[in-house]
Design a protein around this nucleic acid. Structure first.
Lengths: 254, 254
DNA sequence: TTTGTCGTTTTGTATGACAGGTTGAATTCG
DNA sequence: CGAATTCAACCTGTCATACAAAACGACAAA
């Protein structure tokens, strides 16, 4: 069923300079064109998650470009999570996860174009919503797992690294319980940035009761979600973020 | 000067199978390793936006890999907005913009892993926050531009495409006025998805007064931001989203 | 029916080459 | 002496080819 659109790039076509002046990343460059071709190929053939794409060689031949060009296009789409390439296998359509955006945010913080405080503001905004949705839509298993995570956190209170892992799992599970994968994607993308700042906040909690206060905040959130008490869940999450942000500000993270 | 970390990849090293079972995109593959090397290079040398990186050849030689490998690593990082590569120029450190996430969201919607309604829920959550921040932090120029955009929208009411352009500019300007670039990044990333659904909603506004209602919603938002009336701005934006979402639901977009 | 084997396909990596663009320094002119 | 110009070195874009490694599918054997 060779029903793919026919788009023969005449090798000697010298008629493609309409307005390639504005953005150098738009249409100039063979690789960018092939990337666009691959995207339209996915859309026009209605390929879903896991569907296989033509091989690099096939796609390169069909478009009249060399294999390295098609290869770089595949690699670029894999880098943004649209394709899943692997040795020996054909490239498959992938469903993007949080890792790409996590890399981007981590980089943006590193080059000082984004502050931890700004990320926390967005996190607070998003998680005040996910906690509401989660209290309405969570399954019984998710509620139970959430309560277990708080117990895990209490047990791991002496090990910052373990607390961090549990804390991340806690917030991502709430996002998952919101039944909106975009919230999961966005909140999951804060992982790299959270990892870098967690220890600052946690170590500034000198006393045991200060650490217990943080854990109790999580407890209140989990309890409210388990009880499906939406206003209380939102209130508890709000206090949790207030506590965390104030801690970071006092620790000097501006 | 050549102070980069030395990490010679022994060609015949057969001792790297600790746990490369879980994720095929983690450490397997030379390109992935080089991508990681480039990231650590940026971090360790504290390169900021616009800083130049070594050439593909230099980096490839230093790591003992071929140029195509280094090239694909650069290309992958450029695809996610971390690098800015161009013909003739050396690669520079870039500040990521919304285009990458826009591509990802567009793709995720296309493969039916994300619905328009779910995107709208996130948009509503984020923009209820940006409109609050904007009402507090907007400059006088931004307030004036916002009011002008509403006038433009009123003038362009007969041309759906023009309304769409103005509408996008309206929401992105509010995000910019929030003084948090992460909000700009996220809200800007909804452009591709918004473009696809705008016409459905707008065309379902059959009567003139229905279109005017939408424009008046924008007017109320802009007025409240100009007056720095935060609660009213939030209320107006909330009504704007309620109106838009109800419209899409009635149009059958589930 | 299940399993093991083997050949084919596909990706991973390397090498070499050349065209075209960019950059910066040397040069020349005012 | 300063500024515009020219030019050469550098760098990326693209291509062709080759071989290794991994995965897949078909076929044969238990």
């Amino acid at each position: 069923m060779g029903k793919a659109r026919e788009l023969d790039h005449e090798t000697g076509s010298s008629e493609e300079r309409q307005s390639a002046e504005e953005r150098p990343s738009a249409t100039s460059g063979l690789v960018e064109q092939v990337i666009e071709e691959v995207r339209t190929f996915i859309h026009q053939n209605h390929l879903g998650a896991g569907a296989m794409l033509p091989s690099e060689t096939t796609f390169a031949d069909r478009l009249g470009v060399s294999r390295p060009v098609a290869r770089e296009a595949y690699r670029a789409l894999a880098a943004v999570g649209i394709l899943d390439v692997g040795n020996g296998r054909r490239a498959r359509v992938a469903v993007p996860d949080a890792s790409v955006l996590s890399l981007v945010l981590d980089h943006t913080v590193h080059i000082k174009q984004l502050s931890i405080q700004q990320i926390f503001d967005v996190r607070r905004t998003l998680e005040l919503r996910t906690v509401s949705l989660a209290s309405l839509r969570r399954s019984n298993e998710e509620a139970a797992t959430l309560l277990n995570l708080v117990d895990d956190m209490r047990r791991a209170a002496a090990s910052p690294n373990d607390v961090l892992v549990v804390d991340i799992a806690f917030h991502e599970l709430i996002a998952q319980a919101s039944r909106n994968p975009l919230y999961s994607l966005l909140i999951g993308s804060f992982r790299a940035a959270t990892r870098q700042t967690f220890h600052i906040g946690w170590q500034s909690r000198r006393t045991v009761e200060s650490k217990l206060e943080s854990i109790n905040n999580h407890q209140r959130v989990a309890d409210a979600i388990a009880a499906q008490d939406t206003p209380r869940a939102e209130q508890a999450m709000s206090e949790h973020f207030d506590s965390a942000i104030n801690l970071l500000i006092r620790a000097g993270v501006v």
